[in-house]
Design a protein around this nucleic acid. Sequence first.
DNA 1: TAAATAAAAGACAATTTAGTCTTTTATTTT
DNA 2: AAAATAAAAGACTAAATTGTCTTTTATTTA
Lengths: 143, 143
Amino acid sequence: MLSVTCKIAIKAVIYLASRYGSGEKAGIKEIAAGINASEHTVGKLLQTLVKKGVINSIKGPSGGFYVTSEQRRQPLMNILDAVDGKDIFTQCALGLNKCSATHPCPVHHDFKIARDQLKVIFTTKRVADLCNQVNNGLAYLVD
Amino acid sequence: MLSVTCKIAIKAVIYLASRYGSGEKAGIKEIAAGINASEHTVGKLLQTLVKKGVINSIKGPSGGFYVTSEQRRQPLMNILDAVDGKDIFTQCALGLNKCSATHPCPVHHDFKIARDQLKVIFTTKRVADLCNQVNNGLAYLVD
DNA sequence: TAAATAAAAGACAATTTAGTCTTTTATTTT
DNA sequence: AAAATAAAAGACTAAATTGTCTTTTATTTA
């Protein structure tokens, strides 16, 4: 479904946004430790997120990564798009290039319903929503 | 979602079952041509399907691959399980090992709904159903 | 029984994806 | 201004997946 990197990216952003206020910075080490992932992997992927405007960063001592209050309001889709792209929401279940209502693969109609539902989840769930769940102990970022 | 191999496998089985009657045999070349895929890839993957009992084969001249009428009634899930396994229907969206209703990741509840829906599609749709669609010109296996 | 046919099996190669490491650049603090 | 800190950048390695090829085995037909 999502790539491994993308899953880590979502956890990293939620961790950052749930533990730190808007503008408050966290370093790579801390974020990696907080979501139980490799520092190297997290470092690399945070770069991508900064480049795509999902989060921000500042170099140097007392630098780090942070989210703005606006970025808290963005849907998970932004993270997914930055790392994996949006292809999974348009691709045919059987790999046809031209699969549509007028030229469907044999599972097109049903598959589209499920695929669209996933799309709804990722476009309606916002970073802030998930932070609340984590902060209230209703959801977890680690096993 | 599904691996490339698995997508080809589904198309191969549907092609075989839609073009040939129960017990009627088709060769690798023909199946590969019929779904616009590489002979090598198809040959290899059909082996897997035979081993897992999704289809049957007979060696030698006038040999080939075929499906029984019983195999026509099997759900797509059997193909998916034979090639990719059923993991995609249990895996956590964010990659947690222990993600459940009592220890959920932040998207568990919604994701599970969509995931379960996909599972329903693959367990209720049978090979024969899709063959009918293809044979009636309601669905296609190639672009 | 020999030749031809077609799948089975497995080795191998290529590609893609993921993960790691090193060097560079920017910023801050002393 | 120098030293320290932390991200940026990119090269590199490793692993997983996908795809290709060759050899073997079974079967049939002449």
